[in-house]
Design a protein around this nucleic acid. Sequence first.
DNA 1: TCAATAACCTAGTAATTCTGTCAACTATAC
DNA 2: GTATAGTTGACAGAATTACTAGGTTATTGA
Lengths: 164, 164
Amino acid sequence: MRLTTKGRFAVTAMMDIALRDAAGPVSLASVSERQKISLSYLEQLFGKLRRVNLVDSMRGPGGGYSIAQPLNQVTIADIVHAVDERLDATQCSGREDCQGEHRCMTHELWTTLNAKMFEYLASVTLGELVEQQRQKLAVQPVPVAIRDKRPRRRNSREKAVAAA
Amino acid sequence: MRLTTKGRFAVTAMMDIALRDAAGPVSLASVSERQKISLSYLEQLFGKLRRVNLVDSMRGPGGGYSIAQPLNQVTIADIVHAVDERLDATQCSGREDCQGEHRCMTHELWTTLNAKMFEYLASVTLGELVEQQRQKLAVQPVPVAIRDKRPRRRNSREKAVAAA
DNA sequence: TCAATAACCTAGTAATTCTGTCAACTATAC
DNA sequence: GTATAGTTGACAGAATTACTAGGTTATTGA
């Protein structure tokens, strides 16, 4: 369970789509523009997300991606896991034949935290995050075309949190 | 709050030291051998850990590192934060002058999960992990010199957890 | 059937992570 | 003192990962 920009971009993009796909598939180009993530990179990430059936794709004009499963069945761990290939800080790669004091030591040392992190991310669903976003933004999932273009102010307090 | 092998190696090494430094400072060379992490890399990581006063160093023969603070005051977030320089998935870098719909959207989208992850890692202390390790390993913190060299069997069940 | 749109694919470049090596510097043991 | 075991710091290079660029294929509408 690794956690880098890659996984974060994937989660951000999935949330962006989840907030809008009630009106039909969302194109990566629009996600790219809104979230300021390079289109090529998004395409790579969504190739992986599609392969594990987290999203459905539609080609052609008006096409794009939509979330393939109910929002509260998709966990953050699912998303991160799909794009941020798993990370192994042990020497034995978690194999059953891991023996000998040194290797087992490494193995044991890491598994506890690893499991905790994974369980935590697996307990948070996309649906929950999206719901929280809706409340924060006070924005309904409207089509992009009729979206209000006026800039909005952010409420402060986020600096400390963002700095983490 | 980024989480990669770098942070994990740091946590693993800190746990290794915490388990043994009752008998005096622990050398990085021995940590390197036990945990199979390159000595050079450990030196880089511990340079950072020392600069934020998470560890004390003693030079000369018999020297090495020891944990500088009470084990249950050191959180995993402290360790990861010291070596895995913080990661920013927003465009505005969390600045106060973040305005305009697009940037704020990215900003808002990420802060929630970011904060949750950080809070979680900040709630886990090195002391707790070490205690769990002690119980799992059933090993007392004895000096390396009189350590039992016989290989030990690992209990199974860890595969699924390690695979995450 | 042509043009536009958007997914899909492949290869390359940039950045990061990790290892190896070398040269100080320091405390302890003899 | 002198040798030795150890930390500290700097740097270069290999390996991996993150990201970009450009092209190809499928679908829609005129």
